[in-house]
Nucleic acid binder design. Sequence first.
DNA 1: TCTGGGGTCCTAGGACCC
DNA 2: TCTGGGGTCCTAGGACCC
Length: 418
Amino acid sequence: MKYVALVDCNSFYCSCEKIFRPELRNRPVIVLSNNDGAAIAFTKEAKALGLGQMCEAFFKLRDLVKKHDIAVFSSNYTLYDDISKRVMNVLREFSPRVEVYSVDEAFVEIEAASAIDLEALGQKMRMEIFRKVGIPVGVGISHTKVLAKIANKLSKKHTGVCVLVDGPQIERTLRDFPVRDIWGIGARSAVKLNMLDIKTAYEFRVFENTAMIQKLLTKVGREIQDELRGINCLSLEAPEDKKNTGNSRSFGHDLYTKRELREALAQFASNAAQKLRNQQSVCFSMSAFICTNPFKNGPQYFGEAGVRFTSGTSDTLKLIAGAHEILEEIYRPGLGYKKGGVLLNHIVPKKECQMDLFNKDPSDNGSLNHVVDIINKKFGPHTIKSAACGIEQEWKTIRAHISRQYTTEWSELLEVEL
DNA sequence: TCTGGGGTCCTAGGACCC
DNA sequence: TCTGGGGTCCTAGGACCC
């Protein structure tokens, strides 16, 4: 029999930090968003203090942090990405069919003869990941992705593994499972279902009027209902190239001048261009935005516009020029800007890219970008970049509590004294 | 002082084609 | 008297995810 497991890392960002700081065991730990603005990850010790219900503004937590000696980290995505890859590699030892769903979770297709085997397999996954990478995970196993998600949630309350297969056990579990907690059912859909008097996963599963579900929740909702019934609608997916990509950030402080915004947007465009080249794609249009701080009183502004390219491009310089062109259009003087970003759209693989009829050899700085990529790969990101991005970058994100690049930077390896 | 960033999918409706 | 039918493509907006 084929089953699907959902493996999910516990408090992933916090767990990554704890690998290299064993003294933090049993201490509350939180990780902050970009700009140290809000807390976004919490260990169970931090949750026990009442944290973690949602994103929480860090400045509101300062007293609590002091009082309970909470360890605080700025987010270190380079580290988390690397640890994530290691976890996924361990999972691939269990099955060739692994779908990396996000940085901290993956679906794994597995085969087993009985539920007892499944339980043992789940435990083995947990042990191996902890032994090889040092990250604690929960494993939920069932017939479909949606059921595996539910099993995974329950696993955290049990032994770290929850197997949910046919029989009265599924029914009992679904009766206690709120419809809002089902994967794919958000706040809006939950309200609609509640109006039909559907409050639990079980009630959703046995609700007979599927046409009504289709109408209210579209195809998405109908497939979730089928998955609850054990019918596979959502198969494991192979990784695909991004159809949209971008880069945006909150600034360390409000920006007023066009000069600073030009720098920031140039950097965002560079980062996005890099992502595009990493997947060997080009884009045919881009957009950019700048906005004021919605949490502040005073006039609010959200400016956004786009440009198109006659031929596909992944050229950093061309994209920077595009971002600057957009900025001219959307910039309004006198405002304090808190955030900005660049988005790339109409992305296609480079080799499928339609040539420009009137420009047979589009100058895309192909070899220049290639060389820049090689240098930055070898000597570290931002070793070489367009001067348009600025040198000091005073607008940059605040990261006051950043940990080291323990696993990706030679100069930041952990030192061990013997 | 101070509130994240990066994605996906679906649908309705408009524009356009022959 | 009286003005088609069938289709594609694109976009904006909504909803959801981690």
